[in-house]
Amino acid sequence: MREYIEIYNQHKEKIEVFIEESIENLAPLCNHSENNFKLLFNTFPSLELVYVVNSITKEQTSANIYKYKVDESEKDKDRTYLLERLEIKDNDFAFAQPYQSSATSNLCITVSKKEGQNIVFMDLRLEMLLERLGLIEKDKIFSNVVKAFYMFAGYFMMFLSGVAIFYAGSDFLSNFLASKLSIDTIFKPIIAATLGLAIFDLSKTILEQEVYFKSYIKDSKIEIKTLTKFLVTILIALSIETLMVVFKIAIENYDKMINALYLMIGTSTFIISLSVLIYMTKKSKEK
């Protein structure tokens, strides 16, 4: 949703001019109320809802008119709150900032056109409007295939993360009940649970960015934040594994301590590299 709003704000003037010119070609709009604004819906595929409010009485004088249905329940309701925040321009148009429609639950913008005492309100679905203007590109078949793939991969990774955490809990519980507590039985479940958490966090990000809130703007801040969170989780698991290996070698195979040293050096290098990444990211934000 945020990406749509950013794109809209970047091209706001162009979008408003397109809408104004298209509506002017159909003016006066109130003449189309007899056929439920059918021509208006044909002109704007993104149009979801049309209704008319009297600027004097501040009451809605028409039903809520959708493309394929009419809702009479909203007629004659007071719309003072709408008119109070309406900023009508010299050309009798007004545009509201993008918002999530309570009627359709889609991200919309409301365009208003004053005609005498009447003000025609039109809710346009922002995603379809941006697509119509070529500000975002979507091939429905390809987009649906990609979306389905990401959805499957995301939920499958969530399932695997659940399996990893379940394994961690069941393994520890079985060893605990059997009184087989050791370094392995304590640290291995922690590692499995940590990896499960990392996988879950990654799958959540995939579903958010590619399925439910498709990103059309490549925001490096989001990508770096996701990468950092994932690497930190992996680093925690690796550090625990390193600690466990050091303990095991110190107790059982002291002559192989050099291998533990190599592992500690590798983990330390990982920590330093991640610290540099975080530092450089913060420096770039300050600029």
Rank of each mutant, 00 (worst) to 15 (best):
V145D: 06
Y254D: 09
P45M: 03
S22W: 07
N175G: 06
V70C: 02
I240G: 02
L195M: 08
V232P: 00
S22M: 04
Q209R: 13
N106I: 08
Q100L: 13
F37P: 00
S33W: 08
G134P: 05
P28L: 11
Q117P: 05
A178E: 14
V246Q: 02
L49E: 05
T267W: 09
S73A: 10
E208I: 13
F156L: 08
S275Y: 11
V145M: 14
I249S: 02
V50H: 04
V163L: 06
G266P: 01
I240N: 12
F166E: 03
I141Q: 10
S179A: 06
K214Q: 15
N42A: 02
H32C: 00
A164C: 00
D201S: 07
A96V: 12
A178N: 15
R85F: 03
D184E: 14
Y279T: 14
Q10C: 09
I65Q: 03
Y99N: 03
L243Y: 07
N253V: 07
L238M: 11
T267C: 02
D78P: 01
Q97P: 01
V163G: 06
K188Y: 14
R125P: 01
M1V: 04
L238I: 11
L261V: 07
F200V: 07
L133F: 07
S268W: 08
I206H: 01
A153V: 08
E16S: 05
Y81S: 06
E84D: 13
F166G: 04
T61A: 03
K147T: 11
S239W: 14
V211I: 01
L133Y: 12
Y167D: 13
Y167S: 12
S268K: 13
L173N: 14
K77E: 15
L130T: 12
E115T: 13
I265Q: 02
M1I: 04
I7R: 03
I236L: 09
L39W: 09
I234V: 12
T226A: 15
I136F: 02
D139Y: 06
V120I: 12
S112D: 10
